[in-house]
Computed example of a mutant assay.
Amino acid sequence: MSISAKEVKELREQTGAGMMDCKKALQDADGDFDKAIEILRKKGQKLSEKRADREANQGLIVTRLSDDGSKASALEINCETDFVARNEDFQNRAEQFLNLAFENEVDSVDELLELEIDGLSVADHLKDMVGKIGEKIKINRVIYTESEGQYISYIHPGNQLGVLVEFEGEIDNEDIGRDIAMQVAAMNPLAVNRDGVDSSVVEQELDIAKEQLLNEGKSEEIAEKAAQGKLRRFYEERVLLEQKFVKDNSKTVKAYLEENGIPLVKSFHRLQLGEES
Rank of each mutant, 00 (worst) to 15 (best):
S2A: 13
I3G: 09
K6T: 15
E10L: 02
R12L: 12
Q14C: 05
G18A: 12
M20R: 02
A25G: 07
L26K: 00
D28R: 00
F33Q: 08
K35R: 11
L40P: 12
K42L: 07
K42Q: 09
G44I: 14
Q45S: 07
R54F: 04
N57E: 04
V62M: 04
L65C: 02
K71R: 05
S73V: 13
E76Y: 02
N78Q: 08
D89L: 01
Q96E: 15
Q96D: 15
F97S: 09
L98Q: 05
E103P: 12
E105M: 00
V106N: 09
D107C: 03
S108Y: 02
E111V: 04
I117V: 15
D118W: 00
H125C: 10
K127L: 14
G131F: 09
G131K: 07
G131C: 13
K132S: 15
I137T: 15
R141S: 10
I143P: 13
E146L: 04
E146W: 03
E146G: 06
E148D: 11
I152P: 09
H156Q: 14
G158L: 10
G158Q: 10
Q160Y: 10
L161R: 15
V165K: 03
I171G: 03
E174D: 10
I176N: 05
I176Q: 05
D179P: 08
Q183G: 12
V184T: 15
V184L: 08
N188G: 13
N188E: 13
P189Y: 04
A191H: 08
N193Y: 08
R194Y: 08
D195M: 03
G196M: 02
S200D: 09
S200L: 04
V202L: 11
E203F: 06
L206R: 15
I208R: 06
I208A: 08
K210C: 10
K210T: 15
Q212T: 15
L213F: 08
L213V: 11
L214F: 03
E216W: 03
E216Q: 11
E216S: 06
K218W: 06
K218N: 09
K218F: 06
S219P: 12
E220N: 11
I222N: 08
I222V: 15
I222R: 02
E224C: 11
K225R: 14
G229C: 10
R232D: 15
V239P: 14
L240D: 07
L241K: 00
V246C: 06
K247T: 11
D248C: 00
D248E: 04
D248Q: 01
E258F: 03
I262W: 00
L264E: 01
K266S: 08
Q272E: 13
Q272K: 13
S277A: 10
S277K: 10
